[in-house]
């Protein structure tokens, strides 16, 4: 174990009701890295982020962030820890009833007693970092999807967290916004000394920016490595995923009885 380990997930299992989502997963994130967690839709990636954020507790195993076991903290300690985390939700999750400026200022106003002009400077600085200083007065409904994502990113880094988590930051973006968002994640991680945890299924975009990749399938890590290692990987699942092939270890068809049976072609006496 390295001294600079920020997030450590040890043999964690979790299920919603009777349906297991994660079955003994192991994962480590070191400070200053951009880590990608990839996998097909519905494989428990978002669940993993919620475990790290302490919104749900693991059924088995330990989730450690900065040395603290997230699942065992009381709510006050958990809230203290969360101030050091930022999270970018899939569609930004901006507060729709307040302006872009107020969205970014939200945490500063809730958690600090800073005077209003200091808050203003800080907010404009964060907005400048994502290139949207000019949009400060707009309402979230007036933003495009990509802009909303960037505002949410500015909001996530408002308190200078040590860890930022991204839930599908590339989903539903046009190619330009995609590149902008990807570069932002990399640049902010490097300049602010963050650690970034990116949950995504956009292989091409994320492989450009990440340091290390975990592949999750059926609740376990099936492959891991640096971007170059993943590209070169011979594992059938990873190969299918990276190259976007329709059929492979992940079948195209949802499990079903035989097609012929379903169409009644082999009915008795027919």
């Amino acid at each position: 174990m390295h001294n600079d380990t920020l997030v450590e997930i040890e043999d964690v299992a979790f299920g919603y009701g009777a349906r297991p989502v994660l079955k003994g997963i192991n994962l480590t994130a070191r400070r200053g890295q951009v880590i990608a967690i990839m996998g097909s839709s519905g494989c428990g990636k978002t669940t993993l982020l919620r475990l790290i954020g302490g919104q749900i507790k693991p059924g088995q195993g330990k989730v450690r962030v900065a040395g603290e076991s997230v699942g065992e903290l009381d709510s006050a300690a958990l809230y203290r820890l969360r101030r050091k985390m930022g999270m970018l939700f899939q569609f930004g999750a901006l507060f729709t009833d307040i302006s872009v400026f107020d969205n970014v200022a939200f945490q500063l106003r809730e958690h600090t007693d800073l005077p209003e002009d200091t808050i203003r400077d800080l907010v404009l600085m964060k907005l400048h970092a994502v290139g949207l200083r000019g949009a400060a007065h707009l309402m979230p409904s007036e933003l495009s999807g990509g802009m909303a994502r960037r505002v949410a990113l500015a909001r996530a880094i408002a308190l200078d967290p040590m860890l930022v988590m991204y839930d599908e930051p590339f989903a539903g973006l046009d190619p330009i916004s995609l590149g902008v968002t990807g570069n932002l994640i990399r640049r902010l991680t490097d300049t602010l000394g963050l650690t970034s945890l990116v949950v995504t299924h956009d292989v091409q975009e994320s492989l450009k920016i990440v340091d290390y990749v975990y592949f999750v399938s059926e609740g376990v890590v099936v492959a891991e490595g640096t971007a170059a290692e993943i590209r070169a990987s011979g594992l059938p699942y990873v190969h299918q995923f990276v190259h976007g092939e329709a059929d492979g270890p992940v079948p195209f068809h949802y499990p079903a009885p035989s097609y012929a049976d379903d169409l009644g072609l082999r009915r008795q006496g027919a």
């Binding site: 919104q55 809230y79 969360r82 101030r83 569609f91 999750a93 507060f95 945490q107 809730e110």
Partner: peptide, 14 residues
């Protein structure tokens, strides 16, 4: 539904 409540929770605001 738009995860605003979750986002708030993650920003350590109840």
């Amino acid at each position: 539904a738009t995860e605003q409540l979750s986002a708030m929770e993650m920003m350590a605001v109840d």
